[in-house]
Design a protein around this nucleic acid. Structure first.
Length: 462
RNA sequence: GUGGUUGUAGCUCAGUUGGUUAGAGCACUAGAUUGUGGUUCUAGGGGUCGUGGGUUCGAGCCCCAUCAUCCACCCCA
């Protein structure tokens, strides 16, 4: 076989030991916060049945699902007519019945329905696993990436929404991020706006357009709305709403008067007010995170069409990057799997984007690369057999230790320690073996002292 | 799906209007130093110039195709 240059699929990555240490720092930080708020971890399979996933993310989302080809001769059962078909929509379900998960929310809904007899409501779970999207990769966009989701089902309380805002605030602050905004909005308010304008059927086009406001500006948004079928008079009504500014309270007050005749709109506003009240009461006076960057943004829409109440999105203001988190309330996600009237709300952290942001801002702690604490140098067979019991002793005392596996040149062994950022090296020569006093070299200062093994253990453990 | 960018050593990239044997830094290996790394000096290995075709006396450079790549749009974490 010809030699082939190895490669990995586009949009996927290998993670080096240093990168994994940093990624785990992110995961561990987020996990600790989730647990503190009462969430328990679950895991679900990498692949789901294709029909579990299709139809949940809109037409565009369906195309981004990675499908898995059936095993065996997957074409043999097809009729000649079916093989002639050129539309993948017809053919795909025949040759593929499994797919890689697209997010963690839909598998969670499936999990809840399948295990409804075993779980206690309200059920608070978190989940940190990779998801896959057949998107075209670019900056901050991968085909395989990790989501960190927390969801609660079976609780209508808006306390959940308020707590999610605090979870975002606490986790991101602990990771070292300073300037970020937690945007919040409510689908019911968007419905109310569409209702007031008299175009409830165009709500999707409306939200997609105004969602781009901060990116393309008001004029372009107006242009897009006109193309989608809105009239000048509709836009005149819409303008004051999307241009709302000021404090969250001020925005709520103006929305109240604008949406006065829309029942659903007013309901959305009332929900938001309740969430803000909860947040205010939850914040301790001497909070470690004094400024809560939670902002009502009426232009926030979010693509996933299963949201029905509050919606969230987190944006980092220091680095040009897509949103680093998002979520919202969905009233009927489990309904499609046969479990009616179960409401849920959840959020997601985009771990890979958070990683990219932290890397750009150099927010990772210094000691993140350290693994082995001490390396024992290896000179010859005699020294090696002398060193083995010491190696065990170090490990039994909880010290990560290695013996260089061959009697290589000392220069090479020290280079190894240096490259691996091992802070200490123990050198054992004939002199050391005679006296029992080992040379302990501090790799940072270059200093070397002769100590017995128990002193070394004590020193390395401090 | 649409538009653009870039493909030269393991990595990051130079390479003049087309001209003889394609370069640098980093990394790697060895030596200066027979028991002392991260700094320095010296030497060395490593290339079908993404792939295929075309123009030309002659192509890393020009033309066409193709694959890959990154960026932007759409959408999204």
């Amino acid at each position: 076989m010809a030699i082939q240059k190895p490669s990995i699929p586009k949009g996927t990555r290998d993670f080096s030991p240093q990168e994994v240490v940093k990624r785990n720092f992110i995961f561990d930080t987020i996990k600790a916060v989730f647990r503190k708020y009462g969430y328990q971890e679950i895991q679900t399979p990498t692949m789901e049945n294709l029909d579990t996933l299709t139809g949940k993310y809109g037409e565009e989302g369906d195309q981004l699902i990675f499908k898995i080809l059936n095993s065996g001769d997957y074409l043999s059962k097809l009729s000649p007519e079916q093989l002639q078909t050129t539309t993948s929509k017809v053919l795909t379900p025949k040759i593929s019945e499994k797919a890689l998960r697209y997010d963690l929310t839909v598998p969670f809904a499936r999990y809840v329905v399948m295990h409804q007899n075993d779980i206690n409501l309200p059920f608070k779970r978190f989940q940190i696993q990779p998801v896959w999207r057949a998107d075209r990769p670019q900056k901050g966009r991968y085909r395989e990436f990790y989501q960190c989701d927390a969801d609660v089902v079976g609780s209508e309380s808006l306390l959940n929404e308020a707590e999610f805002v605090l979870i975002y605030q606490e986790a991101l602050s602990k990771l070292g991020l300073k300037d970020f905004t937690i945007k919040i909005n409510n689908r019911k308010i968007l419905s109310g706006i569409a209702e007031i304008i008299g175009k409830p059927e165009l709500i999707v086009d409306m939200t997609v357009a105004i969602d781009k406001l901060d990116k393309i500006g008001l004029d372009s948004v107006v242009k897009e709305l006109l193309e989608k079928g809105f009239r000048e008079s509709d836009i005149e009504k819409l303008k004051p709403i999307i241009e709302l500014s000021g404090s969250n309270e001020a925005k709520i007050q103006s929305l109240k008067s604008v949406l006065a005749s829309s029942t659903i709109g007013l309901k959305g506003i009332a929900e938001l007010e309740q969430i803000f009240t909860y947040i205010q009461k939850l914040q301790t006076p001497n909070s470690k995170f004094p400024t809560l960057n939670c902002e009502l943004d009426i232009t926030l829409a979010r693509g996933l069409n299963y949201y029905t109440g509050a919606i969230f999105e987190v944006k980092c203001n220091e680095v040009a990057m897509g949103s680093i988190g998002g979520g919202g309330r969905y009233d009927d996600l489990t309904g499609m799997f046969g479990l009616k009237d179960l409401t849920g709300v959840g959020i997601s952290f985009g771990a890979d984007r958070i990683y990219d942001v932290m890397e750009e801002l150099q927010l990772f702690p210094e000691n993140a690369g350290e693994s082995t604490r001490v390396l024992i140098g290896n000179f010859d067979e005699t020294a090696e057999s002398y060193a083995l019991p010491l190696l065990s002793a170090l490990r039994q005392n909880g010290i990560a230790a290695e013996l260089y596996p061959t009697a290589a040149k000392l220069k090479k062994q020290l280079s190894y320690a240096d490259a691996k950022k091992i802070p200490y090296v123990i050198l054992i020569g004939s002199e050391e073996m005679e006296s029992g006093l080992l040379s302990l070299k501090n790799m940072q200062s270059g200093e070397q002292q002769k100590l017995d093994i128990s002193t070394i253990i004590q020193l390395l453990n401090s």
